[in-house]
Nucleic acid binder design. Structure first.
Ligand SMILES: [Zn+2]
Ligand SMILES: [Zn+2]
Ligand SMILES: [Zn+2]
Ligand SMILES: [Zn+2]
Lengths: 157, 157
DNA sequence: CTCACTATTGATATCAAGTATCAATTAAGA
DNA sequence: TCTTAATTGATACTTGATATCAATAGTGAG
């Protein structure tokens, strides 16, 4: 059975910036420290609120640098601001809880194998792919069992 | 070999709206006619520009109704406004040309089978998924062969 | 260590996408 | 035809994000 998770990568965001020739500054360290401390995915605005002493422009700029460096994933959200999460695994996909928004990473070799197999069938050259699995996470499941009750809101994609 | 495309569905957008109890109006017909005439994916703003006599609010509202009705797909775009395309196939995924933005639909039974198989390995209940394959479409490939030259700009996801 | 030079910062203005309001208009059924 | 509720669209507003640019702060040379 192929591994669902693999190769957790050591992350040091401020180093990722320095590797790109960017200076280590107080503002950037504040941003990267905060991101590393937060376990979950976040929006740029959330980060701005949590770092009132760092200018929004700097928060947005730093996020952009980190995405460019491949140290952060930008998750496309259908409605509202995109979310970001630390890229702990080289190539991977995300699980997103449709109730609480919790984001997880996973890798699955079968998925990648299927992607490669599509090469033959798709018109043009494949240059990449993206995939998200929407879930109800175990903690949300637990909560809804406590409150028993309510609806099975399924997500239509 | 499993089919890459399947079940093309007849689309009649104005009917899709009427089926939801919405009235057939001149403004809505103008919007749906336009969408049906445009083969490619489009943004809301594009549609507004092409329909200067329909108010933007109405364009946005109509698009929202069509997405709710499942007649339009909303494609999450990482940067900039989301794009919409007519849903011609029941459940499906998209190919997106990373050069020209052309959007295609496809279905592949293996992909769906793999998704189901992930149920066992992912923590929580799977309620849906989304997938996009980024390509260089055949027409862009043809163009770049004419101009010979240039770089294999690969997309990092 | 000091200086000069460039990168960085952040207040502010601006832009872009999209939604809320609400009076005027219009579709649709009796 | 007439009544009524749905729809429209000009306008103002919200939100997310970027552009500007003077002030500030790293960095490397001397
Ligand atoms: Zn959850
Ligand atoms: Zn993959
Ligand atoms: Zn193309
Ligand atoms: Zn699928």
């Amino acid at each position: 059975m192929p591994p669902v998770t693999a190769d957790p990568v050591e992350v040091n965001l401020i180093n990722a910036l320095e590797d790109r020739g960017l200076r280590r500054t107080a503002a950037r360290s504040a941003v990267t420290d905060r991101i590393e401390r937060v376990s979950d995915a976040f929006t740029a605005e959330q980060l701005c609120r949590e770092l009132p002493d760092v200018g929004r422009a700097t928060v947005y700029r730093t996020i952009r640098h980190l995405v460019d460096a491949g140290a952060l994933c930008k998750l496309p959200i259908l409605d509202g601001a995109p979310m970001y999460s630390i890229a702990r695994i080289e190539h991977h996909h995300h699980t997103i809880c449709s109730r609480c928004g919790a984001v997880g990473e996973f890798r699955h070799s079968t998925v990648e194998r299927v992607m490669r197999s599509l090469e033959k069938e798709i018109d043009g050259d494949i240059v990449g792919h993206r995939m998200e699995i929407f879930i109800t996470c175990s903690s949300c499941l637990a909560k809804s069992e406590i409150n028993s009750s309510s609806g099975n809101s399924s997500v239509s994609i």
